[in-house]
Amino acid sequence: MSKSYPREFLRDARNRGPGVTIGQFARDFRVHPMTLQKWLRQAEVEDGTKPGLSSDAAAELRELKTRNRLLEQENEALRRAAAYLSQGNLLGKDSPAREGVGRPDAPNRCR
């Protein structure tokens, strides 16, 4: 909901009187009718008269999704780092591919 209009404005919009349409009320206060309708719908959700996601719950959901995305990225980075570091262990000193490398008494394999 817009920060420029207080809750009293929405209360007045709800109790606008018989015969006054949302369009007329919106025109009087220079608000687009669809915007006013959206604010009224969200106010009903906030009050609990209609089912839906409140502003606080929506903000919390956004924060949790952002946090989840960050944790997934961190997890992927750690997974890649672990894979990279484990490749270095594959060619360790006990590996057959490195047999004799660096030892003076080892037979020369390069001929």
Rank of each mutant, 00 (worst) to 15 (best):
E60C: 05
T49P: 09
E74Y: 06
D28G: 12
L71Y: 00
R67N: 11
A43P: 07
K93A: 15
G102L: 10
Q24W: 10
E46Y: 06
Q87G: 05
D94P: 05
A77N: 03
R67V: 08
A81S: 12
A13I: 04
G52C: 13
F9M: 13
G17E: 02
A26N: 03
A81M: 13
R79G: 06
K65G: 09
E76P: 04
A77W: 04
A43T: 09
Q87M: 07
Q24H: 13
R62C: 06
S2M: 00
V101W: 12
R16D: 05
L61R: 03
A13L: 04
R79S: 09
F29I: 00
T49S: 14
G23Q: 10
M34D: 14
V31P: 03
A59Q: 11
G100V: 05
D105S: 05
V101L: 15
K3E: 15
A106G: 01
S2E: 04
R111N: 01
T35C: 08
R80K: 12
D56R: 13
A13N: 01
T66F: 15
R67P: 03
Q87P: 01
G19L: 02
M1F: 08
K50C: 04
E63W: 09
S86P: 05
E8A: 14
R7N: 15
G52F: 13
A26L: 00
G17R: 03
L70W: 06
Y5P: 03
P104I: 12
W39R: 01
R30I: 10
D56H: 12
H32K: 09
A59K: 11
T35M: 09
A97P: 02
F25V: 02
R111M: 02
S55H: 10
R41H: 15
E72A: 00
R11F: 12
L40S: 00
Q87W: 01
P107D: 02
G17K: 01
A106Q: 01
S4C: 14
E8D: 12
S54N: 05
Y84M: 13
A77R: 04
M1W: 10
P33Q: 04
L78K: 11
A13C: 07
L40R: 03
E74A: 07
A81Q: 15
I22F: 07
R98A: 06
R109K: 13
R11P: 05
N75D: 08
G100F: 11
A81I: 12
L61M: 08
K50Y: 05
K38T: 11
G102N: 12
S2T: 07
R109D: 07
D56E: 13
G23I: 09
E74S: 06
E46M: 07
S2P: 00
A13K: 06
K93T: 08
K50F: 03
R14S: 09
S54Q: 05
T66C: 15
H32C: 06
A77Y: 05
K3Q: 14
E44I: 08
D94V: 06
R30S: 14
L53K: 08
F25L: 04
W39M: 04
T35V: 10
D28Q: 15
R27E: 09
E8N: 13
W39P: 00
Y5M: 05
R41A: 14
V20F: 02
G48W: 01
Y5I: 02
R103V: 05
R109I: 12
L40C: 02
R16C: 09
W39L: 03
A83E: 13
F9P: 09
R7C: 11
L71P: 00
Y5F: 08
R62F: 08
F29Q: 06
F25I: 00
G52W: 14
V101S: 12
